[in-house]
Amino acid sequence: MHVFLSLDWFLLIEKAILISIIIGISLIVAMYETWAERKVAAVIQDRRGPNRAGPGGIFQPLADGLKLFMKEEIVPNLSNKFLFILGPGIAMLTAMMTSAVVPWAGNIHAFGRDIPLQVADVNIGILYIFGVVSMGVYGVMIGGWASNNKFSLLAAIRGASQIISYELAMGLTLIAVLMLTGSLSLRTIVEQQLDHKYYVFYQPVGFIIFLVCAFAECNRTPFDLSEAESELNMGYHQEYSSMKLGFYLFAEYVNMFISSAVMATVFWGGYDIPFLNDAKFGQEHGQNLLAGLELLCLFLKIAFFIFFFIWVRWTIPRFRYDQLMNLGWKALIPLAILNMLVTGFVILFH
């Protein structure tokens, strides 16, 4: 009995609410990313994009989601049924889990408590994201293998090796950033950047490498080799239909949201409001207003990165697979190592 008494119930409830809100927001953002993708694609190609469902096609994602739910659920006869269903589940789970360590804003003050807008401030923040992302490979691989289809398998293997390759370069750039921060906790990293000392100004090369790797990790064009429809039909989710396919597609958009959040947090000051002294503003106008503005600011940064993701998708054509691997192994990784070494030397002799 004392198990239940010893727990901090307020903390538990607070975290449960926070987690559900974050998951809800991730899903809504992912939904509207699909809409934004179609809309941006349209305007870039001088078209209008979805404009029938609601004003400006604002209800289009709901219609799309409903359509996916109504579709027939097909499980191929010779597939491995359990793994076939597990695959999209893992993809969605890992996409959702990443958001746990992102600090969304400073503390808010409510019910006599300081509530941090972050699910868990673990002291390995960035590594946690890394770990979860590396688990995301299994969603692709298990799905591709369980489909019992050669195209799916090839695409899954392509996708997985691409993700592993680019994880290396990503990790190496992060090491250079971590040398500056001296901490892995994302909240500490943001707090260090609060007076506009954004790490992008100290690590411009690192940021570019990280950006490129983020594209590869999210399977976005120009690196969407695992769903290259011109050569592999539909890639690893070829045999999927209905909401299982929806899960894979959705997981991609959630990943995009989270990697935008991570880029904004690590390199662009996270929830810091540009051209404003946050601490002073908080004292003058209250903590809650500050937290609200910070949240808005972070979301604006995220929205820009999401737009950037989409913008690149409709500009740059897909890479060939050997070009992709050459870029990863022969350009980005050496560059990242060089960046790391230079950063190390500067810190040592500065």
Binding site: V43, I44, D46, R47, R48, N51, W311, V312, T315, I316
Partner: peptide, 24 residues
């Protein structure tokens, strides 16, 4: 590649503000 990519991105960005030839 970066200058070439930036050029391409600028071209696509310009198209956002073009007049749409589509008729509703």
């Amino acid at each position: 590649y970066i200058p070439a990519i930036a050029k391409g991105m600028a071209i696509t960005f310009k198209h956002i503000f073009r007049k749409k030839p589509t008729i509703n």
